[in-house]
């Protein structure tokens, strides 16, 4: 069995394989659902209904997708430049920390001023977290996969320390949680009585902005060039280390926005369970989207729908909600395989 590189990738191939991949993932998951004794058709039906079937479910899925768009963009931006940022989780929490430090009354500003101030600070928080590993990488050649991954735990412990200390809400009955952000910091709901908030719109706008940066700007060009061939980029005169530093600021900043939007749009305060692994799921989202910023929006909604739908299915059909993790994982693996097959042809001899 060998792989032969394909010279040309037809459109049918580029569309067909990912579709096949998702179909394959669906079949595998159907078998797993059957193992639990439920009917896969009923299971998927419940899932679909639970994720998109009702207005409530649909808005819930979009709510869940919001932080995933931000962290997915963070991963996509960094991965394009081959900066392996596995630390979106830490950057998200740092963005949230900045939000509650400034947004819980320290800056009593009206919302038109407070929002941008908080957004920028959250971005700075996230960007700083990623700057350290990026500096170590460009200066000393330290592998950023290791440093960004381990920083996740360090930052989480740091947040835990803050929540037990200076940021602890005195009215919180002893729970490790921060005070609520003031009303002017909060994002309005998009629909009365639902949890979906303005953060979703801002996330989609962020995806559009990243797309424009990628296609039109010199920076986007530099990031792609560095990602494809850093040596040739350097030879041509592209300042590779400076581009990586800018990439880190952008990627870390986007992940920081995820923390800001969760706090100001949804939770109101900072707790240690602000993110059930949005930073890690962002990597999956980015890979499913083939690192395309607009694709990230679609992939984030897909992953969110799987999680929300699986919750609904487990409540009704008794299938464990862990199936969501399996589905996302199988989708990712088959998608990655499909991407490989669009680039290479499999020969059995």
């Amino acid at each position: 069995m060998r792989l032969e590189p394909r010279e040309h990738q037809s459109l049918a191939l580029l569309v067909g394989y990912p579709v096949l991949a998702l179909a394959f993932a669906a079949v595998v998951c159907a078998l797993l659902v059957m193992l639990t004794g439920a009917s896969p058709f009923q299971g998927f039906g419940l899932m679909l209904k639970g994720a998109l079937g009702t207005q409530f479910a649909f808005f819930e899925t979009l709510t869940r997708a919001t932080p995933l768009i931000f962290t997915g963009l963070a991963a996509a931006v960094a991965f394009r430049a081959k900066l392996w940022n596995i630390g979106a989780e830490a950057q998200l929490y740092m963005g949230a920390v900045m939000t509650v430090v400034l947004g819980t009354g320290l800056l009593p500003l009206p919302w038109p001023i407070l929002w941008p101030v908080l957004m920028v600070s959250a971005m700075i928080g996230g960007a700083l977290v990623l700057s350290v590993p990026t500096f170590l990488k460009t200066r000393f050649g330290v592998d950023e996969v290791v440093t960004t991954l381990l920083l996740n735990f360090i930052v989480l412990l740091f947040v835990s320390m803050l929540l037990e200390g200076v940021l602890k809400d005195p009215m919180g009955l002893g729970w490790p949680q921060s005070k609520k952000v003031i009303a002017d910091a909060q994002l309005p709901k998009l629909v009365q009585g639902k949890r979906l908030h303005l953060g979703f719109v801002i996330a989609v706008l962020a995806a559009l902005a990243v797309w424009i940066v990628d296609r039109k700007s010199a920076l986007g060009y530099e990031m792609r060039a560095v990602g494809h061939n850093a040596k040739a980029a350097h030879f041509a005169g592209i300042p590779v280390n400076r581009v990586l530093a800018k990439t880190a600021l952008l990627s870390g900043g986007l992940a920081g926005l995820a923390g800001w939007s969760e706090v100001t749009g949804l939770k109101g305060n900072l707790t240690l369970d602000l993110s059930p692994g949005f930073g890690y799921s962002g990597i999956v989202v980015a890979m499913l989207a083939l690192l395309h910023p607009i694709g990230v929006v679609a992939a984030a909604i897909f992953v969110a729908a799987v999680f929300v739908g699986a919750d609904a299915m487990s409540r009704t059909a008794g299938v464990p909600s862990y199936i969501a993790h399996v589905m996302v994982a199988v989708s990712l693996l088959s998608m990655v395989t499909a991407i490989m097959l669009t680039r290479y042809r499999l020969r059995w001899r």
Binding site: Y221, A225, H228, N229, K231, A232, F235, G237, I238
Partner: peptide
């Protein structure tokens, strides 16, 4: 291959690599 050109980018993108700024 390793220094002169970025293989996975287009001819246009490579043509301006020295002067895109």
């Amino acid at each position: 291959h390793t220094e002169g050109m970025i293989g996975d980018m287009s001819i246009t993108e490579n043509a301006v690599a020295e002067r895109y700024r």
